[in-house]
């Protein structure tokens, strides 16, 4: 049992981190009122890009960074469409998914199924990792896991304790009032989606370079969509997003562990659990009026000054 817990907890950060990064990125977009459905596609492209960078002989960290940048670059047309041209955000986001998935397939064809050495665990003394239960959880993790947690804290601080965060939230809550207060609505939306897509890109890059250390088509496997639900679950709070990521990541991490136990469970049904769990969580959340009130008031809508 202890062995099971150690292994499960040890694998948890790997599952949790991409979800956390993606939902933090999305959280920035949504706090500024932009519903970015493109997460799945952006993650796919970034996972492919960073894998190709590593396969080209560069080390993991620059690969991660380039993956994040690729996420921002592919989001540019989406940003232009929704921020400047006020395009309806749902179809624009879907288009971003298509372009991201398509580009990752088309460009990354030759990089698929080639294992590589990606991120390595932080160099703690080896004895630490042998500690029961928490050893692998704490001392066999790479730097991005830590970085993601730090980013969550910084995001919370930035959103709720700085004037930039106040303005960004105001833009998503009530752009007319923000505009009246002299806040450049378009600038903040642009900035939010830019930061957001960098983080979403980082999440994608972590999937290949951090987690699997290989790139395959379709490896994002719905995590982008789960991130969307996770943001609702987190009530648009970065700190709550950590708990959400632990919950969803934990459930996901359970699947290979249960299989490793040799339980005779139908494998495909087991794989459904994250999706079923997500839908269940959305249903439960819908009963909370507090969670509903947490939604940014102007999410998904187009603002023009005339509407004020």
């Amino acid at each position: 049992m202890i062995e099971f817990a150690t292994a499960w907890l040890g694998s948890l950060p790997g599952f949790m981190t991409p979800l956390l990064l993606a939902s933090l990125g999305l959280l920035f977009c949504e706090r500024a009122g932009v519903l970015n459905l493109g997460v799945e596609g952006v993650m796919a492209l970034s996972a492919m890009t960073s894998a190709m960078v590593v396969l080209a002989g560069y080390s993991a960290w620059p690969a991660m960074a380039l993956g994040a940048v690729a996420g921002a670059l592919i989001s540019l047309p989406f940003m232009m469409a929704v921020v400047v041209f006020r395009a309806p955000q749902i179809p624009a986001g879907l288009a971003l998914v298509a372009v991201g998935l398509g580009a990752s397939q088309a460009i990354g064809r030759d990089a698929a199924h080639k294992p590589f050495a990606g991120l390595q665990p932080l160099p703690w003394p080896e004895a630490f990792a042998d500690l029961p239960v928490v050893g692998r959880l704490l001392f066999e993790q790479d730097g991005i896991v830590l970085l993601a947690l730090v980013i969550a804290i910084i995001a919370a601080w930035g959103l709720f304790r700085t004037r930039y965060g106040l303005r960004l939230r105001a833009v998503g809550e009530d752009p007319a009032t923000a505009d009246a207060a002299g806040v450049d609505v378009q600038f903040y939306q642009f900035a939010a989606v830019l930061i957001g897509s960098l983080l979403i890109g980082l999440a994608g890059a972590y999937l290949s370079v951090g987690g699997s250390q290989i790139w395959t088509e379709g490896m994002v496997a719905g995590r982008g969509w789960i991130a969307l639900a996770l943001v609702v679950f987190a009530q648009w709070s970065p700190v709550r997003a950590i708990f959400g990521a632990v919950l969803f990541g934990g459930a996901e991490a359970l699947i290979p562990r249960l299989q490793a136990l040799g339980l005779e469970l139908p494998v495909y049904f087991l794989s459904m659990t994250p999706y079923v769990l997500t839908i269940a969580v959305l249903l439960v959340i819908s009963f909370s009026t507090r969670a509903k009130q947490a939604e940014p008031g102007f999410l998904g809508r187009a603002y023009i000054r005339q509407d004020r």
Partner: peptide, 14 residues
């Protein structure tokens, strides 16, 4: 022109 979920102080700071 006030943002309802924000506190008075947040509105003023904004």
């Amino acid at each position: 022109k006030l943002i309802l979920p924000f506190t008075v102080r947040e509105n003023l700071r904004l």
